[in-house]
């Protein structure tokens, strides 16, 4: 006769009592989330945080300082579009990939991924949106760098009283766009691979500055490596695309080094994003 607590093996069924529950008319299933919306959201998220704001501000400030410095200090013969474009573009090339990197890592380090990946349970859709957003930012970035460079060139040459020199070819422009996209992809790749903001930022600077210094030093002292270097060093392989001197060999170098340093780790990173738990 005695009643004891409900045993674990045979849980008592929960009975529905309130009639109110049935009152709610079934709602039509909502429309799926279009990719363009995710892209817009991810673009906004790159810039609407404190770190995003500061990075963008730093890029703008360094661009202004660099342009002013060229006008103030460069010899008149150097007041060309190329000089101005490079002055603005180099700091931007260092800072913009950090935006791409943070767009991925912040979901983990700031743990906002708990909300992001709950609102969009298909992680790869979110990550693809971040990838496209990063590439777009890279393309807009180079456009802004060149635009600023063009204005600097016009102002600089008129201040100095010299002819305005437009010494950037269409092929060089194409190479620059490609180089910027690759830089953004590197930032993105380190983001998905490491998924931790401080770790990925350190890796980014090692990847861009320490590695290339090491390979250059190694190539300088070890003749056997000097021949090998163009097929191993991804940074060196990108250089011809920045200065517009790329040929068939440069493309081959880029393809080989890019597979090793970008495509392979990117594939691993994307696989890890799909598997790792968002805590």
């Amino acid at each position: 006769m005695s009643t004891t607590t409900t045993p674990a093996t045979a849980p008592a069924p929960i009975t529905a009592s309130p009639a109110r529950a049935a009152d709610r008319t079934p709602r039509p299933a909502p429309e799926p989330i279009p990719f363009t919306r995710l892209l817009g959201v991810e673009l906004t998220k790159m810039f609407d945080t404190r770190s995003g704001r500061w990075l963008t501000t730093s890029v703008a400030v360094t661009a202004l300082i660099a342009t002013a410095a060229v006008i103030a200090f460069a010899p008149d013969t150097a007041l060309t579009f190329d000089t101005f474009g490079t002055a603005v573009g180099v700091p931007m090339a260092v800072l913009l990939p950090v935006l791409a990197l943070l767009s991925v890592t912040s979901e983990y380090t700031q743990r906002s991924g708990l909300t992001t990946f709950t609102l969009v349970p298909h992680r790869h859709r979110v990550v693809r949106a971040k990838l496209v957003a990063s590439v777009l930012v890279g393309i807009v970035g180079i456009a802004v760098a060149l635009g600023t460079g063009a204005v600097g060139n016009l102002v600089g040459s008129s201040v100095a009283g010299v002819d305005t020199v437009w010494d950037v070819s269409a092929a060089q422009l194409g190479g620059l766009v490609l180089a910027y996209v690759l830089l953004m992809l590197v930032g993105f790749m380190l983001g998905v691979l490491i998924r931790n903001s401080p770790g990925a930022i350190v890796a980014y600077f090692v990847y861009n500055f320490v590695l290339s210094t090491l390979t250059m030093a190694l190539a300088a002292y070890q003749p056997w490596f000097a021949d090998l270097q163009p097929w191993v060093d991804f940074n060196a392989a990108q250089a011809p695309f920045f200065d517009g001197t790329f040929d068939a060999t440069a493309w081959a170098h880029l393809a080989v080094t890019g597979s090793l340093w970008l495509v392979l780790p990117l594939a691993v990173g994307l696989w890890l994003v799909g598997r790792s738990e968002v805590k």
Partner: peptide, 25 residues
């Protein structure tokens, strides 16, 4: 299955951890 919901936020409200928000936003 949750992953099969076309727009989960419109059907299911989820709060797993209030601390898991971007601090810089």
């Amino acid at each position: 299955r949750y992953a099969d919901l076309p727009n989960p936020g419109r059907e299911v409200g989820v709060l797993l951890d209030a601390s898991a928000q971007h601090a810089g936003r």
